[in-house]
Amino acid sequence: MTLITALDLASVLVFAITGALVGARAQLDVVGFAFVACLTAVGGGTVRDLLLGRDPVFWIADGTPVALAALVALIVFFTHHLLQSRLTWIVWLDAVALSVAVAAGVGVAAGLGQGIWVQLVMGIVTGSMGGLMRDVVCNEVPLVLKQGELYVTAALAGGAAAVLARELGAGQWPVLAACAAVTFGLRAGSIRYGWRLPSFRARPPRS
């Protein structure tokens, strides 16, 4: 198993947990849990592979990601009541999954010989699209769109850290570790300390 494949599977695992927990908040049945978990787990990687022209898409080439996501959904379906605050778990697990998925996206694009901007975009796409689909389907306010929060910004900064580390001559492990660390650090700071970007505020009309 390659490092990129391992990162994809790790992000699938953690994103599947968040999808299943959102399914619990939406009071779905077990099939709904599995659907949302799988959608969240493979959504970002699917969009990435389609944009990059990878054939076949990663979970079609190997069904392990979908099977893993479905198994996670089943486990969460029977155990979610043990958690005191599902929303807190969703937010923090999503931050972990984001950091891993961004690294995977950057790594896949780099491995295909894509340029720097494509690598950055694929990191963002891989990290954010699954969670966006999850929240839209379950009628939640998407984490990626919450006012001022560092989400896409964290993913972009993580991708930039990977590119910089590679330009400095670092190997694959340090490059992807830097990507994940910067992404998680910024996202965690936004969650824990309220780090925000300036938000648009409409000015009152002139009298």
Rank of each mutant, 00 (worst) to 15 (best):
G111F: 10
L39T: 10
L145K: 02
R86E: 14
V141E: 14
D49A: 04
T40W: 03
V137I: 15
F58A: 04
A101L: 03
G148A: 08
G105M: 06
I90M: 02
A6G: 01
G123Y: 03
G127I: 08
S11N: 07
Q119I: 00
V96Q: 10
I124F: 13
A109R: 03
L120F: 06
L132C: 02
G113V: 08
K146W: 00
W92Y: 12
G115Y: 12
D62P: 12
L132R: 01
S99M: 02
D8K: 00
A41L: 07
L21H: 04
A26F: 11
L145Y: 13
A67W: 15
A26C: 05
G148S: 09
L120P: 01
I116D: 09
L120C: 06
V121Q: 07
A97W: 04
T79F: 05
G111I: 11
V12C: 03
V22C: 07
A109Q: 02
G107A: 07
A41H: 02
V22Y: 02
F78R: 13
T126H: 01
Q147R: 14
H81M: 04
V76R: 07
I75S: 10
V136H: 09
L74D: 04
S85I: 12
I17A: 13
A34R: 12
D29S: 09
A20K: 05
D135W: 13
A97F: 07
G23F: 09
D8S: 04
V141L: 14
L120R: 09
V102W: 00
G123I: 02
V12F: 00
A16S: 14
V91R: 15
F58I: 09
L9E: 01
W117T: 07
T79D: 01
F77K: 07
L83E: 08
I124S: 10
G111M: 10
T79V: 06
V30F: 09
V47D: 11
L52T: 05
L13P: 00
V137E: 10
E149P: 01
P142K: 11
G105N: 06
S128M: 12
G43R: 12
T40K: 02
V47E: 11
I90F: 06
R25A: 13
